[in-house]
């Protein structure tokens, strides 16, 4: 793809492309910069100025506040644990099943595919699922946050589709070399699918990181809560209208400060934001392997 024989049209296109994407990137990232700036601002400034990118009076009190107890460190630890173990579980379950289903001649494949699709549309709902988790003895354990979502049917179908697009010749030759299906999956298919694995690993990881609802349902012990439960609660509390706070003792009617809310959002977002740039390397690697396989 040499750039030296670009036509004028292509150069104009390039110019517009850069411009358009830059504007889009700025629009998407500005509100987050506001939240970031706001987390370092004072309450007074936040209520006065509706939007700013640099705080007038720099203050780290919001961060001092949230990091002053060990709760946040513990919950970050929990979130990381769930995300790592959960994602590995997800990938193990999804990749194996997707590979088996990607083989068109597998007997019973259509039946299972229909089973998967059906489960995507019809679900028993919150209460029956909760009862299954309870009967399995998973309540109040992190297993309850990992196993009930071990496979996303959506991801499974797309990964299966990616696998189907790999050139069949490779697998054939590997099989002739004496590999079993397991060997083919491990030695040929997975290495060739790094972009896909990275992508869906990211999807699963972000899903775990952002999930607060399962934690609320399945974990009764608040010392086990992940970060998102805290984040969600602080955001929701600061959203309450005063008259709605009938529940609170009148002496303690004070919702979290805006800056604290923003600091919690920043703390909850930055770690997972960093995952993507790390994974981007694998996207490039996929292309490289793709060219070798020839």
């Amino acid at each position: 793809m040499g750039s030296n024989h670009d036509s004028l049209g292509e150069k104009v296109f390039d110019g517009f492309n850069y411009l358009f994407l830059s504007i889009f990137a700025v629009i998407t990232v500005l509100p987050f910069i506001y939240i970031f700036a706001g987390s370092f601002a004072t309450e007074a400034e936040l209520s006065e100025r509706s939007f700013f990118l640099i705080p007038r009076d720099f203050s780290i009190s919001a961060y001092q506040y949230i990091f002053s107890s060990n709760t946040i460190f513990r919950s970050i630890g929990v979130s990381i644990y769930i995300t790592v173990v959960g994602t590995i579980t997800n990938l193990a379950f999804t990749l194996t099943m997707a590979y088996a289903l990607s083989r068109r001649d597998l007997l019973g494949r259509n039946l299972i595919m229909n089973l998967v699709i059906f489960s995507m549309l019809f679900s028993g709902g919150m209460i029956p699922t909760y009862l299954v988790v309870k009967e399995l003895g998973l309540l109040n354990s992190y297993g309850a946050l990992i196993l009930p979502g071990a496979i996303s049917a959506f991801n499974l179908i797309i990964i299966k589709n990616f696998f189907q697009q790999l050139p069949p010749g490779l697998e054939e030759s590997a099989r002739i070399d004496g590999c079993t299906d397991l060997g083919v999956l491990w030695r040929i298919v997975l290495p060739l699918s790094m972009p896909v694995i990275a992508t869906f690993g990211l999807f699963y990881a972000v899903g775990h990181w952002n999930n607060f609802f399962s934690a609320l349902l399945y974990l009764n012990d608040h010392t086990k809560w992940p970060l998102q439960v805290m984040l969600r609660e602080i955001v929701m509390l600061s959203q309450l209208a005063i008259g709605d706070i009938n529940n609170m003792d009148p002496n303690y009617v004070k919702p979290p400060e805006q800056s604290v809310k923003m600091a919690v959002i920043v703390t909850g977002t930055i770690p997972i934001l960093l995952v993507y740039p790390l994974l981007q390397r694998h996207f490039a690697k996929g292309v490289l392997l793709g060219s070798i396989k020839g």
């Binding site: 209460i127 909760y130 309870k134 609320l216 349902l217 608040h222």
Partner: peptide
């Protein structure tokens, strides 16, 4: 044993608890 439930999800948790029989 205290069982704290975030206010914004209290309704769901209550329904689940009722359904579980525990």
């Amino acid at each position: 044993t205290m069982q704290f439930v975030p206010n914004s999800s209290y309704g769901d948790k209550m329904n689940i608890t009722l359904a579980s029989g525990q």
